[in-house]
């Protein structure tokens, strides 16, 4: 049976450990080394990037998307505003994929400077809006029929 003093000591100790753990995560530079994806600038700047499997994140540059409808591959440019990387996709992107949207792609930087990916993920913004004109856009269909 614990005495009240012991129990309160546990409380103070637990809160102290928990608080300092939270402080360490908040104020340390964990985010500097642990990143979910690299920007095009970081990919270009990192000499070790070639050949390693990494994630690249950025916006699809409007006007650069080219579909090959026969084999489902696509090429498009991904930018962070200062650097741009050409991405060669060997997979069908999800239905929200379009020019101007945020993407995270997993793959490798090829020796010709392009990025080969097998996995294209769409990064949606925090905007949730009703469709213009009152009807849901059939995004999947418009992507297949009219990629513009």
């Amino acid at each position: 049976m614990k005495t009240a003093t012991q129990r309160r000591l546990f409380a103070v100790a637990a809160l102290a450990v928990a608080g300092s753990a939270l402080g360490m995560v908040s104020y340390s530079d964990m985010g500097e080394d642990l990143v979910y994806y690299w920007s095009p600038t970081e990919l270009r700047a990192n000499a070790n990037a070639k050949g390693a499997t990494v994630r690249l994140g950025g916006l699809v540059v409007p006007g650069t998307l080219q579909w090959n409808r026969d084999d489902g591959t696509a090429t498009f440019d991904v930018t962070d505003g200062s650097a741009t990387v050409r991405v060669r996709s060997q997979t069908n992107p999800p239905q929200m994929f379009r020019e101007g949207i945020g993407v995270v792609v997993e793959g490798k930087l090829a020796s010709d400077g392009a990025f080969d990916t097998q996995r294209v993920m769409v990064k949606h913004s925090n905007e949730y809006q009703a469709p213009e004109g009152g009807h849901p856009p059939d995004v999947a269909r418009t992507l297949v029929v009219d990629p513009s």
Binding site: A11, A14, L15, V17, A18, A21, L22, V25, S26, G31, L34, V35, Y36, Y37, G57, V104, M121, K123, H124, S125, N126, E127, Y128, Q129
Partner: peptide
Amino acid sequence: VMAYVNIPITYFSVQMWRSIHQVQSNPGTM
């Protein structure tokens, strides 16, 4: 108490680190 450390980390993870998950929406974005 120990497990609870992770709750603020989870909530603010989208602001502290790069992620594919979007940041919190608010009435201005919705």
